[in-house]
């Protein structure tokens, strides 16, 4: 996972590069929570562009980080989510509270 911090916007962007299963999620969770605590952002974004695999462990990870970021008053959003991953999120109903933002400002993130 690559971590990008945009100070001016109080934005913390996590670019996930791992396959999101139970094994990887345990490590990503620790890193993400450390960064959220350190930066205290207003917004947390998870970029799924490089996620080639996700199972239900990914749902747990995102819901958990949403709750944790919320303690600091930050919103959580998801970007670049492929069809397969979107379907898994849809099944769980979490997209009602954690939105997928389509066409997120690619000129800056890319």
């Amino acid at each position: 996972m690559r971590v990008n911090h945009y100070l001016e916007d109080k934005l913390l962007l996590f670019e996930i590069t791992e396959e999101l299963d139970h094994h990887e999620v345990e490590r990503i969770r620790k890193r993400a929570d450390y960064e959220i605590q350190r930066v205290m952002p207003k917004k947390v974004i998870f970029d799924f562009k490089k996620v080639s695999f996700m199972d239900s462990a990914g749902i747990g990870l995102i819901v958990g980080r949403y709750k944790f970021a919320n303690l600091y008053g930050a919103n959580t959003e998801l970007i670049n989510v492929n069809e397969k991953v979107r379907k898994i999120f849809e099944m769980s109903g979490v997209l009602k509270i954690i939105p997928i933002i389509d066409n997120y400002g690619s000129e800056r993130i890319g």
């Binding site: 969770r29 199972d55 239900s56 749902i59 747990g60 990870l61 819901v63 898994i88 099944m91 769980s92």
Partner: peptide, 22 residues
């Protein structure tokens, strides 16, 4: 059942069997 989990403390989503079924 969707969302049923005994391991909520481990941030498990309870979606495993639902995903397998789907």
């Amino acid at each position: 059942e969707p969302l049923f989990t005994t391991k909520g403390n481990l941030e498990r989503s309870g979606m495993g069997f639902t995903i397998m079924e789907n």
